[in-house]
């Protein structure tokens, strides 16, 4: 690197100087998207053509016999629509419940005075160092023993075991220490004078939470929604162990099951595309909040 000050470079020189950096950035961009492009393109091709195109650039181009045959075949072979619906329901319910439950707790922890609040916050944050895999297997054993109250006709009856239900895929992931922490951090930045003003007007604590603090916390809600939705949509290990029933199966376990049926690669790519593109579309539409949310998990260290 030259250390002598250079005169202001002309436009051509500037372009030339920046060329290597741009080239590198572009090549890397190709490295990061080629498998996804390949998946997308191959999902429209018959198997023979996928294999024929492997040796050249056509593998990444929508050329040749393109059709939706792979997609229709997926729906013929497995209840893919049902899997999609299951994942949508499970993710959406967890996101909504998670926002409510964790923000309520964070509100009480950050804005109200009661004995034990500091200790509880410290305990909640301490749980972050324990990875899910540490207690996933005992949790399987435990949910298999948990009772549930069910209505049979007009009679309430206890049933044992939560395996093969929606609730076993939702409830363990509703309360989330990191979401509580994020809401707590954000609520600190909402001025407490607003609470007092509202109290003067006769608002109760719940009213302050619902009408003042939550409406001002859009970014925190978005972050928690994204950080809850992604792992729920992508969840694999947990439903693999607790769901056998095809009617309750989410998409990621569904694709593994479909994959093991040993069907055609074109169909596998079609299924993969179906469960990936909605998330990618969401990501591209809200990429700034996605990236900022995920980067915000960087402050927890």
């Amino acid at each position: 690197m030259a250390t002598t000050p250079t005169p202001a470079p002309g436009p051509l020189r500037r372009t030339l100087r920046r060329a290597p950096g741009h080239l590198l950035r572009t090549v890397l961009a190709l490295v990061f998207v080629f498998p996804i492009v390949f998946m997308l393109i191959s999902s429209f091709k018959p198997d023979q053509q996928i294999f024929a195109d492997l040796g050249n650039v056509k593998a990444f181009l929508p050329v040749g016999q393109l059709s939706l045959d792979n997609y229709t075949a997926v729906f013929d072979r497995v209840p893919a629509g049902r899997f999609l619906l299951n994942s949508i329901v499970i993710s959406a319910v967890t996101v909504v419940l998670g926002i409510v439950v964790n923000s309520l707790a964070a509100f009480a922890l950050s804005r109200m005075r009661w004995p034990g609040r500091r200790l509880l916050l410290a305990l909640v944050i301490a749980t972050l160092i324990v990875p899910f895999e540490t207690f996933a297997l005992p949790l399987v054993w435990w949910v298999n023993k948990l009772p549930w109250l069910e209505l049979h006709g007009f009679q309430l009856a206890f049933t044992e075991g939560w395996l093969d239900t929606y609730r076993v895929q939702i409830l363990p992931f509703v309360a989330n220490a990191f979401s509580v922490f994020l809401f707590h951090q954000y609520f600190q930045s909402v001025p407490k004078e607003l609470d007092e003003a509202a109290r003067m007007d006769g608002a109760g604590w719940f009213g302050i939470y619902r009408r003042i603090v939550m409406p001002l916390s859009g970014p925190a809600v978005a972050t928690v929604a994204i950080l809850t939705f992604l792992p729920m949509w992508n969840s694999y290990l947990w439903p693999l162990m607790v769901v056998q029933d095809e009617n309750l199966r989410p998409v990621m376990v569904g694709i593994q099951y479909f994959f093991q049926l040993n069907v055609s690669w074109g169909q596998i790519m079609a299924y993969s595309t179906m469960i990936t593109v909605p998330v990618l579309a969401l990501f591209l539409a809200f990429q700034r909040s996605f990236i900022n949310s995920i980067a915000s998990s960087g402050v927890k260290g």
Binding site: A105, L109, M112
Partner: peptide, 30 residues
């Protein structure tokens, strides 16, 4: 004050209960 305390307990209890059942118990079980 008492109302504030009770409301706060009500607000944290869903999260605390869920964390107890799906985090504390399984960790102890491990």
């Amino acid at each position: 004050r008492r109302r504030e305390r009770l409301t706060a307990l009500g607000m944290v209890s869903p999260a605390v209960l869920l964390l107890l059942v799906f985090f504390v118990v399984p960790v102890v079980l491990a």
